[in-house]
Amino acid sequence: MNITLDADKCCAAGQCVLIAPDVFDQRDEDGVVVLLDAAPPADQHDMVREAAAICPAAVIQVHE
């Protein structure tokens, strides 16, 4: 799995961090998404797919 972001569309909802905190974080100043791990281990994959699906700004792309 490989993750890419379209971060300039991020609306700082932070739902990705709630779902997969080992993979996503938010910048302190404006809440924009930060990718902690672009190729997370298998035990994170379901959560990453969930985060990508739920993102309200379609920022997260998952390549498998």
């Binding site: 700082a12 909802a13 932070g14 961090v17 709630l18 938010q26 910048r27 302190d28 100043e29 404006d30 809440g31």
Partner: peptide, 10 residues
């Protein structure tokens, strides 16, 4: 309020 901080209030 910075969003990261707001998330903590949830």
């Amino acid at each position: 309020v910075p969003p990261r901080r707001t998330r903590g209030l949830r």
